[in-house]
Nucleic acid binder design. Sequence first.
DNA 1: AATTTTTGTAAACTACACTTGACATTTAAA
DNA 2: TTTAAATGTCAAGTGTAGTTTACAAAAATT
Lengths: 67, 67
Amino acid sequence: MKNRLKVLRAEKDLTQGDLADALGVSRQTVNAIEKGKFDPSLPLAFKISRLFEQPIENIFQFEMEES
Amino acid sequence: MKNRLKVLRAEKDLTQGDLADALGVSRQTVNAIEKGKFDPSLPLAFKISRLFEQPIENIFQFEMEES
DNA sequence: AATTTTTGTAAACTACACTTGACATTTAAA
DNA sequence: TTTAAATGTCAAGTGTAGTTTACAAAAATT
C-alpha cells in the first residue's frame, strides 16, 4: 500500500517524531508506515486522515493485488 | 467504530457468508466486524469500500474517543 | 569540521485482526 | 410445524500492527 505521508508531513514541516506525537503512536510506527513496512490500523488511518484533513483514500493508495 | 455493513449487505441481498466470500475472509470475521467486535484492517476496509462502491468514511464512522 | 537532529533499522515483546472448527440460536422456507 | 439457512459466539491458533530500547547512518545546524 502506497501513501503520501512523507509529502504531507513535509507540507506541514513535521518530523516523524512530531507526527508520531500528534497521532499518539511511536516514531518507529510512523517510520514503518511511511516506508510501507506495514499498514496502519483503520483507527490510526482515520487519525492520520483527520490530522491532514484529507480522506483516507487520498492518503493511502490500495491496489487489489496487494492481497 | 460504527459501520453501515448490515444495511449495505441488505441492500445487495448478501448473507454474511456471501460477503465473506466476496472479500476473501471468513464468515466469522464479517460477523465480528459487523457487530463491532473489532475493526477491519485497512486493506480489508479498502476491499469493503470497493465492493460497496463507497468511500471508507461512508461505511465506517470513527469517533475520536474510541482511542 | 564538530555537534545535534532526524531518520532507518533491529530484536523482543504485547495486542488484536483473522483463521478453522464447532455448536447453539434465530429466522426463513417447505 | 418440521427443516434448512443464516446468524451469533466460543476456543485455540497464526500473523501482523504497534510497543520499547537501543544503536547506526544520514541530514541539518553551528
